[in-house]
Design a protein around this nucleic acid. Structure first.
Lengths: 332, 332
DNA sequence: CCGGGCTCTGACAACGTTGTCAGGTGGTAT
DNA sequence: ATACCACCTGACAACGTTGTCAGAGCCCGG
């Protein structure tokens, strides 16, 4: 910047004014400075700028996802990117893998780089050890997909309870009474909500709960497949499966195929996935809308950055049941 | 930091030394300083630090992908994150959507934040207007999935030519001679390479090229489906399809299903996708390994950051043909 | 008693930028 | 001619940190 000032024959400060489009510089000088910028191939240094600036804004935010490669997370990511882009803001992204240690490391790394705000999918075991008020250094934060362990923070979540309830009642409407539940790791808030919704759905229909039809902590496609195979091999097997997560649904599909039961046993999965409509039968799902989730979270965060001081908001987004075939197989 | 120094009764510089684990501070003082850090909940400011530091390192890199939500890109992203994490480096991620303007904006945003390096999937129309030597401000850069328009840069790509050739020869080995090619936007380097590989494969088998069997610029599932339907409706329809991209493959599957031809017409797709093994018939693909691609690119970049001054390297990663059923349907 | 080396510490300037404020110029009203 | 204003411009300090260098304190040998 000093070189630009020298070449244009003006002071440092005037160059700064031109770069920041501050008013009150004669157009003649503006041209001279811009010409010098071009000639010297000058590029603004935002780190120095944000250090000195009054608001200290770095125009960057931190994104803490479960796994950037997971389709749900990456769709969230994209939605947030779109909102951020309109504000000239860039996002750091990191994967916690549900590991509180890793989550803490990432959070600290974000804060050390003085991001303006954070959007976080909080790990299940949010014991507060790392993910605490102090760690955040007062950085505005929005939780997404799951609420924070403490209530002091904005959150945008899906109505998991309602979605699961509707899945169960949909199956009951097609004559099923023996409905199994296969769920992800029980410590994950969403997994637990969906299990509760399943129980509520059964209760609402007056169906007694059979603990033998519930399988939890299925953290891989293979685990889900094995659990489903075991369920189907029972003396009184379920006539329908409700799977509480993406990969669990895929594991269940594997199992049904392997037993040749995909046209006999009904299936409803929570969370939509690519090609669900191309399978045979096509898979009925309770669809979430990660794009809306991400956009809403980002808009909430930027509202905070703009000075919104309202009490924390808890936004809940509805789900949609998408009937495609597998969920409409009648009970024999 | 000033406050920490005051509380510990030492100078600013000593606090700096403790924070950076520099040798030559008595353990007594280290304890006093760390205690003060804890008490005041001090968090290091990396932006100020990197401003002053000799090496100017920000411990962050920029990732320019086609679309963070696309499974190929996000798997790349994750692989890069893993390597970066071991180095305490965070990644900014952005989506170019194949738009050179957007690509340029992101590149400038990365550079303005003084990232240590860039990993870029260069947009097809890399006319150099934005994506030029000057833009990069000398930031070390590695291209991935596609080479840079100019050769001055490291790149990690897949052997598209070979993969496409093998797909064609695989189909020929099953008796096919009328093999259609359906490809993504022709300006994309990978799409073009795969088309060339298709032509080379035909030539190697002595099969004359029929231009009526080639469809390009299919940028959506729907476009691919329409193109495939048109091909299948021809007087002399192809007995096999080779699809040059993920979404194009899915479009072709739609078309085959709609005509009830999925067990009659063979199909090989370039790039693997989730559930390809669960379709009926399961889909034979030429699989890329985005994880290896990403890891290699990241390792290359960090070697450069560590001072590697060798001439630019062009790493090429092999593909794997995964036979699953659709590619082994014999010509009638 | 002095000199020399070693270990530890702090004063100061600097990184690249912006906020503050003072000052210079030229025009217009008194 | 003087006062005043609007409009531009630049000198200087500051943001939070680290590199440089000087110096304090101590021990040891001559």
């Amino acid at each position: 910047m000093r070189d630009v000032a020298a070449l244009a024959g003006v002071s440092l400060k005037t160059v700064s004014r031109v770069i920041n489009r501050e008013p009150g510089v004669s157009s003649q000088l503006v041209d001279r400075v811009l010409e010098a910028v071009r000639l010297l191939d000058y590029h603004h240094n935002m780190t120095a700028s944000s250090l000195r600036r009054a608001d200290q804004k770095t125009a960057s935010i931190g994104l803490l996802l479960e796994d950037v490669a997971n389709p749900f997370s990456s769709t969230l990511h994209r939605a947030i990117e779109e909102v951020a882009r309109q504000r000239g803001t860039l996002a750091f992204a990191g994967s916690s893998d549900e590991d509180p240690v890793r989550e803490g490391e990432l959070l600290r790394a974000f804060v050390a780089r003085r991001v303006d705000g954070l959007i976080v999918v909080p790990s299940s075991r949010a014991d507060g050890g790392f993910w605490s008020e102090r760690e955040r250094l007062g950085t505005p934060t929005v939780c997404v997909d799951r609420p924070a362990a403490f209530r002091e923070v904005d959150s945008v979540t899906v109505d998991n309870l309602d979605g699961a309830r509707r899945a169960v009642r949909h199956l009951v409407a097609h004559g099923h009474r023996r409905i199994a539940f296969l769920g992800d790791l029980g410590t994950i808030w969403t997994a637990e909500q969906r299990r509760l919704g399943y129980l509520e759905g059964l209760a609402a229909e007056g169906i007694p709960h059979d603990a033998g039809l519930v399988r939890q902590d299925l953290t891989s496609i293979e685990a889900a497949e094995h659990a489903a195979l075991a369920l189907l091999a029972q003396r009184e097997p379920p006539s329908a499966l409700f799977t509480g997560q993406n990969l669990v649904t895929i594991g269940a599909i594997h199992a049904l195929r392997r037993r040749g039961l995909q046209r006999r046993v009904a299936l409803v999965g929570f969370d939509d996935f690519l090609l669900a409509d191309m399978l045979d039968p096509a898979v009925t799902v309770v669809a979430q809308d990660p794009t809306t989730l991400g956009r809403t979270a980002a808009e909430l965060l930027f509202a905070r950055l703009d000075g919104d001081r309202d009490p924390p908001r808890q936004v809940v987004v509805a789900t949609t049941l998408v009937p495609r075939g597998s969920g409409e197989i009648p009970a024999s």
